[in-house]
Design a binder for these strands. Structure first.
Length: 457
RNA sequence: GGUGAGGUGGCAGAACGGUUAUGCGUGGGCCUGCAAAGCCUAUACAAGAGGGUUCGACUCCCUUCCUCACCUCCA
């Protein structure tokens, strides 16, 4: 029960992870723009995985990087007349605003390329020394040919890669499949190095930072599917050439978020930012949306799926408040089926279904009047734990005593047939996002999350 | 062209060698002072096509068609 199996892209098998301490390196974002729902999905998947592992008593070291120096950042900064590092750090700021709103737990650490220059230079030196990298005028390159396992992750072979490559005129690298470790440049931002001033290539920061923060081999290396090649393939080449050890026990890749079946991209203009979705649908519906499909498969972004996710969230809120008011203990309780779903290659789709079954069970009992303290205690404990693992957040009203008082007042009016007055109270509460559920033997109140644009659907 | 994933009922989308997925939608009903919310019930040739293995396949094997992703910007 406490073992979890995760599908490993490298071996194509599900691998058991039963260490007490779990090290995870998650490839985060390049900070040259706001994040979109695709980033959000990957990060939410790992946030829930982390919460689940911690719930099982594992100690999780989640390291998520920010690529804060990159050609795209520089281009963007030039276009806006801003300093590149100022720009990238302002987007890190915005990243945290968005993901705090999304109730994503802060990672254990968020290393950045620009604060790991020494480590990056050290690892490049190591690669040059061992003959896996070479120095030319334009910088330092990794010799793909020198690494016999190149292509193992993405199932590619070097010859085919070579034949597919476009001509890049200004490259003086030996082999067109080679990739940059250090790009020599005199324009800022740049850093000093044994090979002249310049900037690191995209992949090397992750090798340097994962080595520093997680050691030579760690449990899970993750990111979006689109990082398999070249990013993760190159990381493996760099790290293995240095340490001689496997980089990660499990390579875990999250499927893309598509729009009308196609990947989001700037050129198609179909980007949905995390922020805009958050503004419209709130954090909880967005989280449920991102968890609604199996993490390995694509999810198609549609209005309907968001509506479904929001509906489920509304039912969960009601369920939670019904149980909370019926139960007299509020401890969390394990629901075995739920854990079995998550342990089996992190099947959040199945886990949500099981949560939905529990919500229905509560509705059934509430309708039938068969919900008593003892079963409410158990169901409350289960729901509360599921909500917590999914990282959902139940909103709270300001003054519950006032609500109780209003309900009692309304009850008096109802008993004496003064329905108009009773309805006024109900309306007044409704305006404060409080919904009243009338059951045979009493009224339960539910506080609903206020949507930024306050749409129920 | 190469590699990988997949093609399931009106739509979305799982598991599984033999038993109702589930959700949304749609029809009817119950509860209620009325609502809301919820519940009940009904509804779907379900498996891209063609072979094969098997007592039995959506699930395994082969063939074929189609979709998507990646092939140095990518979460």
């Amino acid at each position: 029960m406490s073992t979890i199996r995760i599908h490993d892209t490298m071996s194509g098998r599900d691998i058991r992870l039963d260490h007490d301490k779990i090290g995870i390196y998650l490839c985060g974002v390049t900070t040259y723009d706001d994040t979109h729902i695709g980033h959000a999905r990957t990060i939410i998947v790992f946030d829930v995985l982390r919460r689940y592992l911690e719930e099982m008593g594992r100690q999780v070291n989640l390291v998520q990087n920010f690529t804060d120096i990159d050609d795209k950042i520089i281009q963007r900064a030039d276009a806006e007349g801003r300093d590149a590092l100022e720009l990238s750090h302002s987007y890190i700021e915005r990243y945290h605003q968005d993901f705090d709103r999304l109730n994503v737990k802060r990672a254990t650490s968020y290393p950045q390329a620009t604060t790991h220059m020494q480590e990056i230079i050290d690892i490049i030196s190591e690669l040059v020394k061992s003959g896996h990298a070479y120095v030319v005028d334009s910088g330092v390159y990794y010799s793909v040919e020198s690494f016999y396992e190149y292509g193992a992750l993405s199932k590619k072979n070097i010859r085919e890669l070579r034949s597919g490559i476009r001509i890049d005129p200004e490259q003086d690298k030996h082999d067109k499949v080679d990739f940059a470790l250090w790009k020599r440049t005199d324009t800022k931002p740049n850093w000093d190095s044994p090979w002249g001033s310049g900037r690191p290539g995209w992949h090397i920061e992750c090798s340097a930072m994962s080595l520093k923060h997680l050691g030579r081999t760690f449990d899970i290396h993750g990111g979006g599917r689109d990082l398999i090649f070249p990013h993760h393939e190159n990381e493996i080449a760099q790290s293995r050439a240095c340490t001689g050890l496997p980089l990660a026990r499990v390579w875990m890749h999250v499927g893309m978020v598509t729009i009308s079946g196609q990947k989001m991209s700037k050129s198609l203009g179909n980007i949905k930012t995390t922020r805009s979705i958050l503004d419209r649908w709130g954090p909880n519906a967005l989280r449920l949306f991102c968890l609604s499909g199996h993490y390995q498969k694509p999810i198609d972004y549609t209005q309907e799926l968001l509506v479904e996710s929001l509906d489920l969230w509304r039912r969960l809120e009601s369920c939670h408040y019904i149980l909370e008011q019926m139960a007299d203990t509020h401890d969390t309780i394990v629901h075995d089926e739920f854990d079995a779903a998550l342990s089996s290659n992190f099947n959040t789709h199945e886990a949500i279904k099981i949560m939905g079954d529990t919500v229905r069970e509560v509705g059934e009992m509430a309708s039938a009047g068969s919900l008593y303290t003892d079963n409410a205690n158990i169901l409350y404990g289960r729901i509360a734990r599921m909500i917590s693992i999914f990282g959902l957040h139940i909103s709270r009203p300001e003054n519950t005593e006032q609500i109780q008082h209003d309900i009692a007042q309304r009850e008096k009016y109802r008993r004496s047939g003064k329905y108009k007055q009773a309805d006024i109270i109900r309306e007044r509460l409704h305006a404060k996002n409080i919904e009243l559920l009338d059951y045979k033997d009493g009224t339960v109140w539910v506080y609903h999350e206020i949507m930024p644009h306050n749409i129920r659907h």
